[in-house]
Every structure is written in C-alpha cells, then in structure tokens.
Simulated assay, not measured.
Amino acid sequence: MTPWSLIGIDRAFRASWAADTCSPDDVADWQPGNPAWGHCDITSLVVHDLFGGDLMLGDVHHAGEPAGYQWWNRLPSGIELDLTSEQFTDGQTVTGARIVKRPLGPLPRRWNEYLLLRDRVATHLGSLPPRPTAPQASRG
C-alpha cells in the first residue's frame, strides 16, 4: 500500500466530488467552482471509513435563519476535520455541534452516492479499509 498524504486525500476528494454525488437538495446549486457543495454527509462517512472517530453534525445558519446541516469528523486524536467547510462562501455559520452514530448497514438515503464517492476516492488513493458494518463506539 502506498502511504497517503493529507494533500493526496484532499485532492482525491476534490477530484471525486461531482453533480452526480451531490445531495439532491443541493444539486441545483452545485458547480465545479465549489465542488464541496452538497457533499458533507457522504464525505464525512468516507473519512470515517478511512480514520474512524466520531461523525459530527451541526446546524447551518445563513443571515440568522436555518439553512440546513453540516457533517464533519472528529478523528480518534480529537482533531476535527471538515473537508467540505469551504462550500460556505456566503457568510453561513455552523452551530450546535453534536456527535451522531453511524447508521447500521446501507444508509437510509444517499447510499448509491456514498458508494460512488467512495469508489472514486479509492481510484485516487488505492485500496480503502472495509466499510464498517456496525457503528463504532463514540467517545462522547
């Protein structure tokens, strides 16, 4: 296995995000100039596949109004990693961070997009760890 670099992981995701993996709620606003848009949920799951840790969820606000949700990762070291935070270019804020458990088995929504993103990332990084079959215990 070839060692990964942080830059390589970032590039793998950037090269893998596309309109066909974007959330259906966000696809109308997706564009190549902001490829992270609409990808936080499945990106955080693939990062979780790579490193474990906790899945984090927060509330997005724009101009003081609710504007959706943001997913990111807390790695086992405690470092929080959000590969899609750059999608917010219009003053959005994220509040109310909380740990959520990974669903068992196939996701109730966006399973095909998750698998497609995971496969594309693997094309760039090489073999990935197996997908979790049960949620990992949370530290918090």
Score class of each variant (00 low, 15 high):
67 A>D: 15
51 F>N: 04
71 W>P: 02
36 A>I: 01
31 Q>G: 11
75 L>W: 04
120 R>L: 04
8 G>C: 05
98 R>T: 14
104 L>K: 14
107 L>V: 03
18 A>N: 10
51 F>M: 07
7 I>A: 15
39 H>L: 11
119 D>F: 01
100 V>C: 05
16 S>G: 07
45 L>S: 03
33 G>I: 01
127 S>K: 14
44 S>D: 03
101 K>L: 15
25 D>I: 11
73 N>A: 09
78 G>C: 08
95 T>W: 04
106 P>S: 08
97 A>D: 13
59 D>G: 00
126 G>F: 14
14 R>S: 11
105 G>T: 11
42 I>P: 01
49 D>I: 06
15 A>M: 01
35 P>Y: 08
69 Y>D: 08
53 G>P: 02
62 H>Y: 07
17 W>H: 04
73 N>H: 11
84 T>L: 06
60 V>H: 07
38 G>E: 09
39 H>F: 09
43 T>F: 09
47 V>A: 05
85 S>P: 00
14 R>G: 09
51 F>T: 03
35 P>W: 03
24 P>T: 04
59 D>W: 07
75 L>N: 06
6 L>I: 09
125 L>A: 05
112 N>I: 04
109 R>E: 09
98 R>F: 03
37 W>R: 05
16 S>T: 01
103 P>F: 10
93 T>Q: 11
97 A>W: 15
31 Q>K: 14
85 S>G: 05
61 H>V: 04
16 S>R: 02
92 Q>A: 12
132 P>N: 00
54 D>T: 02
42 I>Q: 04
45 L>M: 14
53 G>Y: 10
64 G>A: 07
51 F>D: 02
12 A>K: 02
29 D>T: 08
68 G>H: 05
88 F>P: 00
108 P>R: 12
55 L>S: 04
121 V>Q: 03
65 E>S: 15
